[in-house]
Amino acid sequence: MAAYMIFVARRFGQLLLVVFLGISATFFISHMTPVDPVAESITAITNFGKSDPEAIDLMRKTLTELYGLQGNLFEQYVTFWSRLIRGDFGPSLSAFPTPVSQIIFRALPWTVGLMISATLISFLLGNTLGALAGYYRKSRILKILSLGLIGLQPIPYYVLAFILLILFGFVWPVLPITGGYEMNADLTLSFTLVLDIVRHSILPAMALVLVGAGSWLTGMRALTSNIVTEDYVTFAELGGVGSTRILRSYVVRNAIVPQLTGLAMSLGAIFNGTVITEIVFGYPGIGTLLINAVHAGDYSLVLGLASLSIIGVAIAVFLIDILSPLLDPRIKAE
């Protein structure tokens, strides 16, 4: 137990480091801009008409304060952190004066829901097929299935999502290809709404699963074919232990810990994929929000989204990391 607490403490240290490095990077990238975000915003606003110089001056002051841009670089850095810790990212420019945090939290469930369900499906599917393919090496069906999924693996999320969009939007239009629900849907909780949401999530989830499952499959197949040569598997086979039991309790139980570590390590990439897929399908999550914020020149929203993505992914990685020792009694503090 003590060893586990040390392990958790170390992982927590790593979490803090990730957040520190990520947020600092975000800060410095956003401050090396050759364009002045305040001036940009003012141009964006004055484009719509009024241009009273006094009002502009006032606006400049207010925006500088809102964006945390007073003082020297170090003071700005401190302001940035203190706001972040309070969860205050300032008001959104494109939806003034709604706070950025509120806008993000409205989009977050879509991304989290899509990411969790797609990751869960591809992790389970890929690992199951990989374990079976590694264990029953002669099976034709498994070979063909594996080859199919592995073949999809190198195709980038964007391109695969795009192909699905073409297939189901133009060639065989059976599924909704854009949005998270019907345009003028009645948003009170009902069976039709749930069904609608599920229908809209099929294509984005499918893109993520098709790309993701292949790498879990390859990893699991390689692990399985190494583990089946381990003495404890041979011994169990000679002990007359049934093959499903061996596969489940001996092979997969030993392979799942490295796969979970792999999941933790690739969570950042999975998040990228989710966000990119959302953009293709106009899914109302973080990704679409990010692109719209860029197009609208919404400085605080872009910054808030980048920071929150880093923190969110880091926390998820931390959670997976501290859970995996529960599956492997040998993991100690190191």
């Binding site: 990730v18 490095l21 990520g22 990077a25 975000t26 990238i29 933790a264 390590m265 969570l267 950042g268 990439a269 998040f271 990228n272 966000v275 990119i276 990010l290 989204l305 980048a306 993505s309 880093i310 992914v313 880091a314 990685v317």
Partner: peptide, 8 residues
Amino acid sequence: MVIPHFPI
């Protein structure tokens, strides 16, 4: 490795 690249 774990910082998501795309938002950056």
